[in-house]
């Protein structure tokens, strides 16, 4: 009797663990199947077509893809230097009484739902952008900035963790040769934790590109590629959030599913690069 239960328990844990792989494969398959209409109708053109006109049954993903890339790029441009600054502050500068409270509050801020960041962006940040740049205040620039602020706590926390893997004894050896803090950061911590720091930043990028709620409020969902960063625009998650419940034809739905598939493939690729290429092995002293 005991043996039967033992075998059953072992077997069920294995089946459940395997089902994780199954679910992931299922997600890809289902998204692909539902994209078939759109893939058959537009083929490769879907990726390069700039027109997104549901009333004409014409769907092109380029504005959404470009929007995702540009808003994420803007967010990284703003967030990376600040996140590295915060990480250096937390690992090397902050007084030990400050380290824990500041570190914990940054981690807690990373836990605040992104929809809250989006709301803040809409009510408090859009008016500022409107005053400075004119126009509506919603668009690529606003979305990039709000996304940067939303991703900052996560990015700073993981970058700090990567920097903290540098053994104290290694840092002390540099100080013992008369190094300044900046010498130690530049010559010891960054080279030692390079893979971890880059991996953390790319992981944050992978999260940012799939982030929906922080940008949906402030992007405008206009399928148009504009050189004006303060003009309303769209991105893949923004399009999905705004149009999924409004889609009324099979082809419209299918195009949205293809957008989901594209987003999943992009973020899967980015996260895999971060995980497998940079965060794989931990160096040890």
């Amino acid at each position: 009797m005991g043996i039967v239960i033992d075998k059953l328990f072992a077997f069920s844990t294995k089946i459940i663990a395997l089902s994780i792989l199954l679910i992931v494969a299922w997600i890809f398959t289902v998204l692909f199947q539902h994209s078939l209409d759109s893939i058959n109708a537009f083929g490769f053109d879907f990726l390069v077509e700039t027109k997104w006109a549901p009333n004409l049954e014409k769907f092109g993903a380029l504005p959404a893809i470009t929007g995702s890339v540009i808003s994420t790029f803007l967010a990284m441009l703003l967030a990376v230097p600040i996140a590295i600054g915060v990480a250096i502050f937390l690992s090397e500068i902050a007084h030990h009484r400050l380290k824990a409270p500041v570190g914990v509050s940054i981690e807690l801020l990373a836990a605040i739902p992104s929809v809250v960041y989006g709301m803040w962006g809409l009510f408090y940040f859009v008016p500022i952008v409107r005053d400075i740049f004119g126009g509506l205040g919603i668009g690529m620039l606003t979305a990039g900035i709000v996304l940067a602020i939303m991703i900052l706590p996560f990015m700073a926390a993981v970058t700090r963790d990567a920097m903290n893997t540098t053994p104290d004894i290694l840092k002390e050896s540099a100080y013992a040769l008369g190094a300044t803090k900046w010498d130690v950061v530049k010559n010891i911590i960054i080279p030692y934790a390079k893979a971890g720091i880059i991996g953390s930043l790319i992981l944050a990028l992978g999260r940012a590109i799939g982030e929906t709620m922080a940008v949906t409020f402030v992007m405008g969902n206009v399928h148009k590629i504009s050189t004006d960063l303060s003009a309303p625009a769209t991105s893949i998650p923004v399009t999905l959030a705004n149009e999924f419940t409004e889609a009324d034809t099979d082809l419209y739905f299918s195009s949205l599913f293809e957008l989901s598939l594209i987003l999943l493939v992009i973020s899967f690729t980015i996260i895999s690069i971060a995980k497998f290429y940079f965060l794989r092995r931990k160096r040890r002293l």
């Binding site: 998204l31 799939g210 982030e211 929906t212 999905l240 999924f244 987003l263 999943l264």
Partner: peptide, 10 residues
């Protein structure tokens, strides 16, 4: 870290 909106679509 995968986009949660895609899970919604699925």
């Amino acid at each position: 870290s995968a986009p949660s909106i895609v899970i919604g679509a699925f």
